[in-house]
Design a binder for these strands. Sequence first.
DNA 1: CGGGCCACCTGGCGGC
DNA 2: TGCCGCCAGGTGGCCC
Length: 271
Amino acid sequence: MPELPEVETAKNGITPSLIGRILQSITINRPNLRIPFPTDMAERLTGQKCINLRRRGKYIWIDFANNLTLVIHLGMSGSLTVDKTSQSPHDHVIFTTDHGTKITYNDPRRFGMMFFVETHKEHEHKAFANMGPEPLSNDLNASYLIQKLTDKKSPIKTALLDQSVIAGIGNIYACEALYRANISPLRPSNSLNEDEAGALIADIRDILNEAVTSGGSSLRDHRQADGTLGYFQHHFDVYDREGETCKITGGQIIRITQSGRSTFYCPEKQM
DNA sequence: CGGGCCACCTGGCGGC
DNA sequence: TGCCGCCAGGTGGCCC
């Protein structure tokens, strides 16, 4: 599921059940996801009070009163559900609060991860030390982006997936933002001028904000924390629409492969 | 060092 | 109906 809008939706979905609550128990049903769970993860969390939830890029940060922050990444297929009504063999971790609320981490492909950092020392961890600015913050602006792309000859689509350039963008929203900005995904990153960089940033923000408002995108069976489906997938202009007609030019949307990932775009609109 | 390729996993879907 | 190959929202290690 998880690019910035889906991670933000997941974080917001579990926040009311966790803030101010004490974890009563943690059930861990297997030794690892992509990487092993931290040693004594359940013991370190049991009895701890949750005081805040934050998001950085595609990671959720859950802060506890003892200065411990649990970091969760949803990988390709992870989800967090409050009081899930059905069970699945891919329910790997279940957090139970002192109110009896259960928050289930489910992840069929197990590309997700969980680890600890010391609160307010997140940036010392390698996952965050080199991470680019949040796209919805003022840290991202045209002069930053131009400077960051100066020596990059790789395609702009590939650069948008690079979390050290901008945090949180993935394959869907990279395609959608380039479509809106009329920029070909094949353009060398360092060929963008300041106006194009500014327009691209504005479109990235619009897309991400719209998707968050829509509860994210639900591909396959992914759902929000309360079990409802996101619906931004119905607003995709190009993603997964190979062969369909561009609503602006009437041209055909095509699919190409860049760095091993599918790119969807309209060659007539995006130059 | 930048960039490409592949591995990590499971499951759904289309084609034969 | 089955089976098989391909594809999937991400990341990071290895290699040139």
